[in-house]
């Protein structure tokens, strides 16, 4: 490679005007064995650059597939279940079994009521007996009052007789 050319490239290089190709050219030149003595000073620089590029990142990165940890949501789920358990049955209405039970209870109640009503009827018929008794008593009373008037009349007759 022409030394003149290298010198120009170095000049451009120091002014940061070289293209990437020209820099690659320089790197290649300084990494070769025949570097002109006047440019010896640049050698370590370019060698260092080339060498630095060989350094690699060797560690493994633990890439965990994103586990959205469930733990914080457990409490939310628990509350949700609780609320559902409390609220939903109120909206759903009675189940078939509950309906049957209700029917059963209704029937039993109705039976009990009818028993009571039968009892009531009996009581009522007894009451009519009582009313009959009452009538008899009233008749008796009337007769007694007749007896009363009779006695007052006899009293009057007796008074008249004594006079």
């Amino acid at each position: 490679m022409v030394l003149n050319n290298i010198e120009k490239l170095i000049e451009k290089y120091l002014n940061a005007e070289t293209s990437l190709q020209e820099e690659a050219q320089l790197k290649a030149y300084f990494n070769s064995d025949d570097v002109a003595p006047q440019f010896e000073a640049y050698k370590p620089m370019f060698q260092y650059f080339s060498e630095s590029k060989k350094e690699q990142y060797t560690k493994d990165v633990p890439l965990k597939s994103k586990k959205t940890s469930l733990y914080p949501w457990i409490s939310v789920a628990a509350v949700a279940v609780l609320i559902l358990g409390l609220v939903v049955p109120n909206f759903m209405g009675p189940t078939e079994k509950e309906k049957q039970e209700a029917q059963l209870v209704y029937n039993q109640t109705m039976e009990a009521f009818s028993l009571i009503s039968i009892g009531m009827h009996e009581g009522k018929s007894q009451l009519t007996n009582l009313a009959l008794v009452g009538e008899n008593i009233e008749e008796g009373v009337q007769q007694a009052s007749k007896l009363g008037t009779f006695s007052t009349i006899t009293n009057k007759i007796l008074k008249n007789k004594s006079h």
Partner: peptide, 10 residues
């Protein structure tokens, strides 16, 4: 022999 100067660059 070049090591020192290369290190020096760093």
């Amino acid at each position: 022999e070049a090591k020192d100067s290369v290190d020096w660059v760093s």
